[in-house]
């Protein structure tokens, strides 16, 4: 659970940008929550306020979250480049005005194509913006690169 304007310098601190992703991921969000990287478990989701991922275009901000096993990010809004980077790397990110209603530890199920997030703990549905079809197709392929590879193969065949 994070607030507004979580930036790429706290997601992927410059001091560790030279090194391997696993090392960088250990410092992911540490300026806001020193325990985050240690306690994150595969399948966890990050929930935040508005303008998540603002700042740099560094894709490592997405890669660090993925390396920690984060399954999706739900926020009131995302910074433009972070949104594109996440989609390109097949990390589903969902825009939900009701992100603030989620409590730490709630169990969530995300259905990205339909634009629905089920909060199993609170037994309620959060409305979220559905992901556009051309992006869903890309995520289904595993991100932009596999998607492009598929298109190139199709063009060559």
């Amino acid at each position: 659970m994070f607030g507004d304007n979580v930036d790429t310098d706290v997601l992927a601190p410059g001091l560790y940008m030279k090194g391997p992703i696993a090392e960088l991921a250990r410092h992911c969000l540490e300026a806001l929550d020193p325990r985050f990287a240690r306690e994150a478990r595969p399948g966890d989701m990050v929930v935040a306020g508005s303008n998540f991922g603002m700042g740099s275009s560094r894709e490592q901000a997405v890669m660090a979250l993925k390396a920690l096993g984060i399954a999706a990010v739900v926020a009131k809004s995302f910074a433009r480049i972070f949104y594109r980077n996440a989609m390109n790397l097949a990390l589903p990110v969902l825009v939900s005005a009701e992100a603030g209603a989620v409590a730490a530890g709630d169990r969530l199920v995300v259905r990205a194509g339909e634009g629905v997030i089920e909060n199993l703990t609170q037994r309620r549905r959060l409305a979220c913006e559905p992901i556009p079809p051309h992006l869903l197709a890309m995520i289904a392929d595993g991100g932009l690169l596999p998607h492009l590879a598929k298109k190139l193969r199709a063009a060559g065949a």
């Binding site: 275009s57 560094r58 894709e59 997405v62 480049i81 594109r84 980077n85 390109n88 790397l89 991100g143 932009l144 690169l145 492009l148 190139l152």
Partner: peptide, 14 residues
């Protein structure tokens, strides 16, 4: 516009 590295790979390829 600013874009990330994977997207740039797409631009460089296409």
């Amino acid at each position: 516009i600013g874009i990330g590295a994977t997207e740039m790979a797409g631009v460089l390829a296409t």
